[in-house]
């Protein structure tokens, strides 16, 4: 249980980690996450379940959170036993054939959308992926979505993401937009798709202490109701999320 079966380091800050845990592997769906505490001294950190193999009893996470975890990533190795892994948590993304789906994310915050892209493609959707960064650090992200995207667009600046999105929405009939990444970007895209009346989901990436609905740090107002990202999310209707409030909270929280 909770043994690292494989670890691929893409950079000092980025690693793909395959963890053995048959119960989680069996129940995981796109959109679910796990709370991981590597050692008793570590905090509990939420990670998106990027992939799962019920047959092997394993699932994959991508540690991609910046320098804070660099030391930790360095200390992990194959056969390493992780202290605690809890999951799968959260509500799964509703996967079906929507038609054409645009999936959009920022390089750093892109991880949560990877399993959704794959599942949407497997459900028969035409998937247009917009990846806002393309560096050596994010190449693994691209490799994870490339086989499941009909089109991949990438840009170097945040503003350009919005431009790309606008262009796609003008050029073809889009049935659903899914996005994840920094809150200002999500807010801008939500405004853009709202004007065009295209249903839009956002996948929020929030700080959590327990992941099971106790601490309330991940609270967010959706359609005037207070929701918890850990139990009600992490997927929400972007047109009803109060991004301003979210941004204000995120500015002050680790």
């Amino acid at each position: 249980m909770n043994i690292i079966r494989k670890i691929v380091r893409h950079s000092e800050y980025t690693a793909e980690v395959v963890i053995e845990n048959p119960s989680i592997a069996r129940s995981a769906r796109a959109g679910h996450f796990v709370m991981v505490r590597f050692t008793p001294d570590c905090p509990r950190i939420p990670f998106t379940i990027v992939d799962a193999s019920p047959a092997d009893g394993t699932f994959t996470i991508i540690i991609h959170k910046g320098a804070r975890l660099a030391d930790l990533i360095g200390s992990l190795h194959e056969d390493y036993r992780i202290g605690d892994v809890l999951g799968p948590l959260g509500q799964a993304f509703e996967i079906r054939n929507y038609g054409t789906v645009v999936c959009c994310g920022d390089g750093v915050g892109f991880v949560p959308i990877i399993p959704v892209i794959r599942a949407l493609k497997q459900a028969g959707n035409r998937v247009v992926t917009i990846l806002s960064e393309f560096t050596s650090e994010t190449s693994c992200l691209r490799a994870n979505v490339e086989p499941y995207s009909d089109v991949i667009l990438h840009s170097s600046e945040e503003a350009a993401t919005l431009e790309l999105m606008d262009r796609v929405l003008t050029e073809e009939k889009v049935d659903l937009t899914v996005m994840t990444g920094p809150t200002p970007m999500m807010k801008a895209i939500a405004e853009c798709t709202r004007a065009r009346q295209i249903p839009t989901r956002c996948i929020l990436n929030m700080v959590m202490l327990d992941g099971v609905g106790l601490c309330g740090i991940c609270r967010v107002m959706v359609d005037g109701k207070r929701m918890l990202t850990c139990i009600d999310g992490p997927v929400f209707d972007a047109h009803h999320v109060d991004f301003d409030q979210l941004q204000n909270r995120q500015r002050h929280f680790v």
Partner: peptide, 26 residues
Amino acid sequence: NLPGVMTANEYLIRVNFSQHEIYGQN
């Protein structure tokens, strides 16, 4: 929902697990 307003659980969990370094950032 302002930063600076915490739930009882957030506060007490942070207190009870305050030995952890990253909570220490708070």
